[in-house]
Design a protein around this nucleic acid. Structure first.
Length: 526
DNA sequence: TTAGGGTTAG
């Protein structure tokens, strides 16, 4: 067989030692009566944990007579399904050392594991060794290799491999083509991927649900909704029923669609929320029931378009259907309500979670605290925050950032600073946002010296200041008319390869118009 | 006994 793969492999044993390693010594040997077969049954393998699997391997290699290679392949396959590829490789190596011969299946498993770990050259070496021993790779072995090429930066070799396979008389199947299609998307070759869907039918291989799933997802990720919708039509023609995930993916990208349309209402933002809703209604009409993700996606879409009332209606419809929202559903809705300024309904919705047994997570609390702070309810936020600190929930820097920002914006800079100073005691490291928020708070109160002292502290022992940090300080100086200090900071910012952000440029432009600044400033920052 | 895809919040 003429394959353009390296046949250079001499030995399997030199392939890198994998971790975690373990010793076979010390494993209790229970004798020939030990029945590993039971543990290799389909159901038992589904529940198998890694430690048990490794232990089982130890027992199998000591068992006499030795288990068949089929039994070893069942075990290796189960471990590969846990994504513990290094362990499979290590066990395969040990089998080799113990004189247990591999067969086509175990070789294929190992080749797949090397590919999944992006060790293509090792996969090729093993393929070479396998062929030397007289094992012809089958379509599965070669599809694994193809997957390896697709997931590394070798898409042209992946394409070439499929051509070679055909030349050599292999019949690529749905899995082969789907693997390549996915690889093409990974390498931003969407049109080639779509073209391949049509081509595979010509080659006598009908795309299946998985194929369409890969294509629809790839197209939606790139925002090619219309193409994705045309694929949905193709599925219909091919009598392939989309599943709920495919519908959800399309609904999500319809919800995310934003397009500035100056041809329609003058100059307006065009969205496709109505189409998302129609797709949802279409599902219902076909008695194809939307799930919690469908509802959450739609709720998010309406909230983002500032149509929280309709989001709420969808939520209520979901509840009427007997579906309980997930934490994600609630987080979405609560955030939407706060953004719409409906604090009472947001808090009521939060309480409802508790009564329905849906547990709030740290994001729920972050949304709650942020919403309360931004709606002028700092006191209430503080009560919740105090409770949280006493609770078992581990607070991360984001929660502290929200509270520090809430305090600073409410003019309570000293309280913000106290909290900032507490962080090290709580074992939480302030990040660049924490520092920038605090600097911004100092600036707002006219405490520029403090702001500068904090900038210095950052440079000494904190996270490096970023574009946001500099821009915050620059704007503060400009607002105070301190052009010299602003210029100095701009120079420093430029030396760090940052530039003025949108707010700074807008401020400078305004000040240019009313004559407070001259043109040179705009040139300096942009 | 070996290979492929995918959805929601922050």
């Amino acid at each position: 067989m003429r394959l353009a793969v390296a046949l250079a492999a001499k030995r399997f044993v030199h392939l890198r030692k994998a971790s975690p390693s373990f010793s076979l010594r010390g494993v209790n040997f229970s004798g020939a009566s030990y029945d590993y077969r039971e543990k290799l049954s389909r159901n038992a393998l589904l529940d198998l944990k890694l430690d048990d699997a490794v232990h089982l391997f130890g027992e199998m290699v000591q068992s006499r007579p030795l288990p068949s290679i089929i039994e070893f392949s069942k075990l290796l396959s189960a471990i590969a399904k846990m994504n513990k590829f290094d362990v499979v490789i290590s066990l395969g190596e040990q089998m080799q050392d113990l004189g247990i011969a591999h067969n086509l299946f175990t070789y294929s498993i190992l080749i797949n594991c090397f590919c999944r770990r992006s060790h293509i050259s090792l996969a090729l070496a093993l393929l070479g060794k396998m062929m030397k021993l007289g094992y012809e790779p089958d379509i599965v072995t070669l599809s694994s290799l193809l997957n390896g090429y697709c997931h590394s930066k070798r898409i042209s070799e992946a394409v070439a491999l499929v051509d070679q396979m055909v030349e050599m008389g292999y019949q690529p199947n749905t899995v082969t083509f789907t693997t390549l299609i996915h690889g093409l998307f990974l390498h931003n070759k969407a049109s080639e991927a779509v073209a391949l869907v049509d081509r595979m039918a010509v080659k006598g291989c009908q795309p299946n649900l998985v194929t369409y799933g890969a294509v629809v997802n790839g197209l939606c990720k790139r925002g090619d909704i219309d193409l994705a919708l045309s694929l949905l039509k193709k599925m219909e023609k091919g009598k392939i029923e989309p599943n709920v995930v495919i519908y959800n993916t399309i609904i999500d990208s319809l919800c995310k669609y934003r397009h500035v349309d100056d041809a329609l209402n003058g100059f307006c933002m065009h969205d496709r929320l109505e189409e998302a809703k129609q797709m949802f209604e279409f599902m219902v009409s076909k008695e194809f029931f939307p799930d919690v993700v469908t509802y959450s996606t739609l709720i998010k879409g309406f909230c983002k378009c500032k149509r929280v009332d309709e989001g709420m209606e969808i939520f209520q419809e979901m509840s009427r259907k007997g579906l309980v929202g997930s934490t994600i559903t609630y987080n979405t809705l609560i955030q939407g309500l706060f953004q719409a300024g409906d604090c009472d309904m947001a808090q009521e919705t939060f309480s409802q979670m508790d009564s329905l047994g849906v547990s709030p997570d740290r994001w729920t609390y972050n949304i709650l605290l942020d919403g309360l702070c931004n709606n002028g309810r700092l006191e209430k936020a503080f009560v919740v925050f105090e409770c949280l600190q006493k609770s078992e929930m581990e607070l991360d820097i984001l929660t502290y950032n929200i509270m520090i920002e809430g305090m600073c914006k409410a003019g309570k800079v000293e309280d913000g600073w106290d909290l900032f100073c507490c962080l090290s005691r709580k074992g939480v490291k302030p990040d660049v946002i924490t520092y920038t928020t605090m600097i911004s708070g100092f600036c707002r109160k006219g405490l520029k010296q403090e702001a500068h002292a904090l900038l210095t502290k950052m440079k000494e022992d904190g996270p490096l200041p970023n574009s946001g940090t500099y821009n915050t300080l620059i704007r503060a100086h400009l607002r105070d008319g301190d052009k010299a200090a602003a210029s100095e900071l701009i120079r420093e910012m430029r030396s760090c390869e940052f530039a003025g952000d949108a707010s700074t440029i807008a401020l400078v432009t305004n000040m240019l118009h009313d004559g407070r600044l001259d043109q040179s400033f705009l040139e300096m920052i942009s």
